[in-house]
């Protein structure tokens, strides 16, 4: 693991994300900052997806099931050199392919998502297809914790366990918030790790903003069972006025907000050693 590389990647992603969401007057910056460290580690350190193989059959598959954080995937793809950085400027605008929710019209994106609760089922399909074709490819899928309200998530995990899909890696961006507030006040999922254990998955937990911990945990697997990583995160991570504030699920940052936010992100990574 190249810690400095991942740190730079996560920082660059977040700065671009803030700029893009500000410029386009889009929503979901809190959800985007929550998931970015996870995506930086997956793309930068864990998955076999890169500039030269992202269209080839050897690549690993990544699905962002919480598609409202699409900007984070676009920025990860740009850091990987899969997307030209200039394309990011078109985000949200007429003539571009970069819609708010992640779109498979964009190079490097496997599937479009945005309606929650679809990504895991798709991932299980990919993973089983690799299994029966005896292929070594791994499948990674990132879900929100609120998204786990959807019954389809549990339908999919039951099938994944039944099919013994050890090539399936599920990451839960567990920021304890959803669209109208804290999950404990809406649908209290209790201990998500225990729930996935009860479904017979291999379950790992870690700080979802600790790049070293993420790098370790995201590489674990166990023969014959899917792995679920419950990554404990903070919605709006790294920007003091956005952290744990549901307003930033909706509000688009003003120019001034964006400048302050970028400064805070720069400071955060300058002092960061996790």
């Amino acid at each position: 693991m190249d810690f400095e590389k991942l740190k730079t990647m996560a920082k660059n992603m977040k700065i671009n994300e803030i700029k893009m969401v500000c410029k386009s007057k889009a929503s979901h910056i809190g959800a985007i900052l929550s998931v970015s460290d996870i995506l930086a580690v997956l793309y930068g350190d864990v998955m076999n997806v890169n500039k030269s193989n992202f269209n080839s059959p050897e690549r690993d598959i990544f699905i962002l099931s919480k598609g409202h954080a699409g900007v984070a995937q676009y920025c990860a793809l740009a850091e990987m050199g899969i997307l030209d950085k200039s394309i990011l400027d078109g985000y949200y605008t007429y003539g571009s392919d970069l819609s708010g929710h992640v779109s498979h019209k964009v190079p490097g994106v496997e599937v479009s998502t945005g309606a929650l609760g679809h990504g895991l089922g798709l991932a299980v399909g990919y993973a089983y297809a690799f299994k029966i074709d005896n292929k070594p490819n791994q499948v990674y899928v990132v879900l929100g914790d609120g998204e786990c309200n959807e019954g389809s998530v549990w339908e999919a995990i039951m099938l994944a366990v039944q099919l013994k899909l050890d090539n399936l890696h599920v990451v839960i961006d567990n920021n304890k918030m959803q669209a109208l507030g804290f999950t404990k006040d809406i649908i209290d999922m209790g201990n998500l790790a225990e729930k996935f254990k009860a479904f017979n998955c291999n379950v790992e937990e870690c700080d979802g903003h600790n790049l070293r911990a993420l790098s370790n945990v995201l590489k674990t697997k166990k023969t014959g069972v899917p792995t679920v990583v419950v990554a404990h995160t903070v919605k709006g991570k790294g920007v003091s006025f956005m952290e744990n504030n549901i307003l930033w699920h909706y509000r688009n940052p003003s120019e001034e907000n964006a400048q302050t936010a970028i400064k805070e992100i720069e400071e955060y990574y300058a002092n960061y050693n996790g």
Binding site: Y92, T93, S99, G100, V102, S103, S112
Partner: peptide, 9 residues
């Protein structure tokens, strides 16, 4: 109405 959010919306 959700135009730029994409076809899922």
């Amino acid at each position: 109405e959700y135009g730029s959010l994409g076809i899922t919306h």
